[in-house]
Amino acid sequence: MDKEKIRGLLKEAEAKIGIAKGLNEVEKIKKEYLGRKDGQISLILRGLKDMKPEQKKEVGPMANSAKIEIEKMIKDKEEWFLLQGQEVAGFDITLPGSKTTTGHMHPIEIVRQELEVIFNSMGFDVIEGDNLVSDYYNFESLNIPPDHPARDMQDTFFIKGHKELVMRTHTSAMQVKIMEEREPPLRVVVPGRCFRNEATDASHEHTFHQLEGFIVDKNISISNLIYTQKMILKEIFKKDVKVRLRPGYFPFVEPGFELDCSCLICDGKGCPVCKGSGWVELIPCGMIHPKVLESAGYPKGKYTGFAFGLGLTRLAMMKFGIDDIRLFMDGDLRFLKQF
């Protein structure tokens, strides 16, 4: 009987000591078990003298070691509280954290790297190119001969004394260059700076960032284009987006499209951002024009493909809610340190 009881008391004491929340509580526990007058273990020990010798032999050592064990547990706990008390004296966790500094990534860089990772994971190569390019790669190879009215769509910076050179007006300027060097299947994105000679205001910049993408293979179709764009937008916005494809004209694609996505601000219900239409024009795209594939030197009719352009600057504005495009190139640390 007593043996069971001692074991029980020991367990009980251990549990109580474990959850004790302060020195006072520990003191109480000590009294409860080891108190001289009526501590539970003390009572057993005191009762030894009335026991039969063989019972005494059995219970005595057990009660004694239980006493020693509880004493030790209590001592440890008391010490722990004492140490704690020393360390935390006057500790104010609401004081500010120590100042450390780190740099900040430009918001366009953030979006660009995010997209590069997404496209890389979908099997696209990331390739960069020059900003100053020949008229041939920027226009002619893309089925935009001199005096084509489509040149009006892209106000171009020209170079003094070099009629054949332009600041690229779109990252599409890399299409034929890359195709010349590589044989399909091709999945490529080209991020980078583009330039248009137009006056700057809150929504226009003469320097902006695009990401051109294209896929060339033997049997690439419009239905592939729609599927791929949906996937890309899903990855970018981290949710399913509705898209619609409608005719658009760009000389280097045929057929050419504008891809609209349902407005993320109003969920397609219509708001000032989408001018009430529920749609936001997002990605100009199309099936690569046979003349472009011809410029690349591919055998006639062998390949088909599609190309698309993403406005990195525009995406960054959407992502971070930036309402003035000029901030990107303004170099104001109050702006840049927010990222």
Partner: peptide
């Protein structure tokens, strides 16, 4: 264009 069913590209897996 909206009546065209989106279909995934079927091609060999080539890592970038």
């Amino acid at each position: 264009f909206d009546n065209i069913t989106p279909k995934p590209i079927v091609s060999a897996i080539n890592p970038p």
